[in-house]
């Protein structure tokens, strides 16, 4: 991969709108739930997931001077950061013996390829809630469209269409993520 550095001044003039600055609280209000959803479902450990979210925002805060809203959205930037934090936490937990009582142990995550699973969770976290709920109901929980329609009151045809576009969005999200950074 070739990375080309673009001078910050390029394409910007005093007459144009300045790029948005990083607003910590606003970013957390807007993106915190999605980031936490990703971390919780990737790690299955709420306290560790919250630590990851805090660490991600801490790193973002420390790097706020370098944030350039013209190069990517805050949401994309934060997901890139927390992806690394979660993977680091996952790997650290995976190789570190834990003295945890059985009843308090994190739930085991079963998968032949944990990184692939975390990548899918990452993509799901970036979907809208209705899209994610529909995909999870049909393709994770195994409900039929008819059953999910009865639960939600949404017509089957609408749910089918919703799932199709959600899967498209999920595929796009996964295409944009290198699962093995």
């Amino acid at each position: 991969m070739t990375i080309v550095a673009i001078p910050r001044a390029a394409g910007w003039s005093p007459m144009s709108e300045p790029p948005p600055a990083f607003d910590l609280r606003a970013a957390f209000d807007e993106h915190g739930p999605s980031l936490l959803g990703f971390a919780v479902n990737a790690l299955r450990d709420r306290p560790l997931a919250e630590d990851c979210v805090q660490e991600a925002f801490l790193r973002a805060w420390r790097a706020r001077e370098s944030f350039d809203g013209e190069r990517g959205s805050v949401r994309t930037w934060l997901f890139a950061i927390i992806r690394r934090v979660v993977l680091d936490a996952y790997r650290a937990r995976d190789r570190t013996p834990q003295l945890v009582p059985q009843h308090d142990a994190p739930e085991p995550v079963t998968s032949t390829d944990p990184l692939e699973r975390i990548g899918i969770v990452d993509g799901l976290a970036q979907l809208s809630a209705p899209h994610r709920d529909a995909v999870v109901a049909i393709h994770v929980s195994g409900l039929s469209y008819q059953e999910y329609s009865q639960l939600t009151g949404v017509p089957v045809a609408t749910l089918r269409t919703r799932v199709f576009y959600a899967l498209r969005a999920l595929r796009t999200a996964l295409d944009e993520v290198d699962p093995t950074p």
């Binding site: 420390r62 790097a63 690394r84 680091d88 993520v177 950074p181």
Partner: peptide, 19 residues
């Protein structure tokens, strides 16, 4: 963050391919 080893280096500049 508690529970995590700190990473002193700041996160890279925002980039859609930063990951």
């Amino acid at each position: 963050a508690p529970g995590l080893a700190t990473v002193p280096e700041p996160a890279p500049a925002p980039d859609d391919r930063a990951d």
